[in-house]
């Protein structure tokens, strides 16, 4: 891939984040290259959303640093936010507004004064033209996901942060999202996404990081990780037949359910 000469667009170094006395992210570090699709994998509560919150400037870390295209979300939050397209895991929109009004609001917040036609086109792009007059809450779960994605990409950001973007999507929409992600890479964009689907990680991610308890467990291309951990006894113990990325994931993060 020629990683050596490709510059990193997003760097996370020795990040520590706490909620009260609980440490949610514990010395995490990774970097994402320009044009790369990077997957953050980990069981529930591993610290994925928390890590994204720091990059998004929503949460202040205890220590460590984040650099987005050379800028820090702590010192230059607005400049960083202008570069990011964000789909939050749990986000909501003003209940009284229709999704067309919401699209107009968010376009404006990203510096785009879109006429009605353009707003309709954006909605049509994610198959929501018919729903333009509905409030967000009246959309189905998958439609809500698609609307959030539309808002995240409304300003063609160089970096997309997607927190479980395909949860609740039907297979068609999921494929469509993958296609969009691929296209964004072709246009030079970078994507950081979280997912619980190993199939998805394998299908779209150039590299993945597996994290648990806020710490990095493994980092590499999905195929590399499988090759690297094929003989790990923890992985062998859970594999049924050929070792898959899911076996590596469960082997490294344990099979107990997380709270």
């Amino acid at each position: 891939m020629g990683d050596a000469e490709r510059p990193a667009i997003l760097e996370v170094r020795e990040l520590v984040v706490r909620y009260g006395s609980q440490t949610a992210v514990d010395g995490l570090g990774f970097s994402i290259l320009r044009g790369e699709i990077f997957g953050l994998l980990g069981p529930n509560g591993a610290g994925k959303t928390t890590t994204l919150s720091v990059i998004e400037g929503l949460k202040k870390p205890v220590s460590g640093s984040v650099s987005v295209d050379g800028a820090s979300p702590i010192h230059a939050p607005l400049a960083v936010k202008a570069k990011l397209g964000v789909q939050l895991q749990a986000s909501s929109f003003q209940a009284e507004l229709t999704i067309e009004q919401l699209a107009r609001l968010h376009a404006g917040l990203y510096g785009l004064d879109l006429p009605r036609r353009a707003l309709r086109d954006r909605l049509a792009d994610v198959g929501l033209e018919q729903e333009a007059a509905k409030p967000f809450k009246k959309l189905s779960g998958g439609q809500q996901q698609r609307f959030s994605l539309m808002v995240a990409t409304i300003h063609d950001p160089p970096i997309l942060l997607l927190d479980e973007p395909t949860s609740g999507l039907d297979p068609q929409s999921r494929r469509q999202l993958w296609d969009r992600i691929e296209r964004s890479r072709e246009a030079g964009g970078s994507v950081l996404l979280t997912t619980h689907s190993m199939e998805e990680a394998q299908a779209v991610c150039d590299r993945v990081a597996i994290i648990d308890h806020g710490r990095l467990q493994a980092l590499g291309a999905p195929g590399e990780l499988v090759a690297m951990h094929r003989d790990d006894p923890r992985v062998r113990a859970v594999a049924r037949g050929d070792v898959t990325l899911e076996d590596v994931f469960i082997g490294l993060t344990g099979s107990a359910i997380r709270d």
């Binding site: 400037g57 929503l58 936010k81 202008a82 964000v86 986000s91 909501s92 929109f93 990203y110």
Partner: peptide, 9 residues
């Protein structure tokens, strides 16, 4: 949260 991830003071 959604408003605050946009570049809005």
């Amino acid at each position: 949260q959604r408003l605050r991830v946009s570049p809005t003071p």
